[in-house]
Design a protein around this nucleic acid. Structure first.
Lengths: 228, 228
DNA sequence: TCATCAGTGTCGGCCATCCGACATTATTTT
DNA sequence: AAAATAATGTCGGATGGCCGACACTGATGA
């Protein structure tokens, strides 16, 4: 994990913009606040703007025919952009973006964003790299869904989230996102009940611990052993 | 389907390059032939080149821990590029590319490709669009794996393949790719046996028909009714 | 402060799909 | 053309995880 942090510093984490890039986006767009729970965009809407997340977390999900929320695009962190793929490519949103916490965003119209990309090659290359990174993430997800069973997928999800937005503490890493078991089920393709019972299995073997609705990873090694 | 073809013409199919774009790539790279069955690149290799497919089909897959080939990135058609995401983003391949048929490719080194992107904004925007389109495809795949059962996934796969590279005939559309049931299983996350029996179910209800190892779609409507 | 509702815990029946096994039929290879 | 290999067809048993049901607990709000 340290090695990863170091690498991100050296090469630049492709998922988040650096300060200079953020500044370019800020100059082009306007800053907006959304309260927790708010839907930022919805499927079928015209995709005429992109967003930079300044503060908070956003979940990208689709609605299944039975009304289940399926998180297909993971959770977006501060410093990341969202709404890119649909705005660049097609006219309409295919998914929903919902604020998990209170969120501050910079909103940029499609027109302005395309102009910005044309002026700043560097940024346009960055966008390509960013999409490339997301692509590989999505492909990895497909691979996991096909090859692994539910316990492994849940264990990996916890590890991924903790790595990406966990708060390190003396005896572990706490995940401050207050996700419900239903939310989690929608991220790994299973049911709420299965998540509940599996989390308790992990708790019983002391890999994790609950603090209200927050989850603390106590033993990442033991958790990881569920994978495969 | 006609509507789609028309739309591709008007807006430009984002997955395939247009003649002008192809010409740019050809000028920058060299043309190479691979026989059917050949592996074009493998996981862990350094990703220092990108490819434009001139002729033939290429399958992008990963290897599971038990050695199963899982097609995570669908099948790439003539006119599409491949090897983009890994070359742009990270240093190494995460997947394999195998020639399904005899294949002709234009190979471009990473260095030359990046230079080309810097010179030609248009192309660099196209690459971003292309990755965006693939992203959405991968996300759709995740959604399908999570929400649908095997029969629906198989039916949709057949329809997607037939739309993308099927040969229309008087009484249906023939898929000339000679995929084995094992290959198909790896594309929709199931087992070989399940594919065999499901294909026979589809055959019995006359939605499809076999011609050697080629599959002809006779009744797309009936097939589609398996979805969901 | 009580009522309501969202989220959690747990159980047992059920079913889609997996998995091994084996026979049969194509397709290569020599 | 024969032998070897790869691909298909089909069957039953085993099972992971879905689904409904219901009790419990902790939030939120009037």
């Amino acid at each position: 994990m340290l090695a990863k942090a170091k690498k991100d510093l050296l090469e630049g984490n492709p998922l988040v913009l650096d300060d200079q890039e953020k500044e370019l986006v800020r100059e082009t767009g306007v800053t907006v606040n959304y309260p927790k729970g708010q839907i930022i965009f919805a499927a079928e809407e015209i995709a005429d703007r992109v967003y930079l997340i300044e503060k908070g977390w956003v979940r990208i999900y689709r609605l299944s025919s039975e009304g289940r929320e399926v998180t297909v695009g993971s959770i977006r962190n501060p410093g990341e952009m969202m709404g890119l793929a649909e705005t660049l490519y097609h006219g309409r949103r295919t998914c929903f973006a919902g604020a998990i916490s209170d969120v501050t965003l910079v909103v940029v119209t499609k027109r302005d964003f395309l102009d910005l990309l044309t002026e700043e090659h560097e940024l346009s290359l960055k966008v390509a790299k960013l999409l490339a990174a997301r692509m590989r993430e999505a492909e990895a997800m497909v691979h996991e869904l096909v090859c692994w069973q539910v316990p492994g997928r849940l264990a990996l999800l916890l590890l991924k989230i903790s790595e990406r937005c966990g708060i390190p503490e003396s005896d572990g890493v706490t995940i401050k996102l207050r996700l419900t078991h239903e939310d989690i089920a929608g991220m790994i393709g299973t049911t709420r009940q299965t998540v509940t019972s599996l989390l308790n299995t992990f708790k019983r073997e002391k890999s994790i611990e609950f603090q209200g609705r927050e989850i603390k990873i106590l033993d990442a090694k033991k958790l990881a052993s569920w994978i495969v």
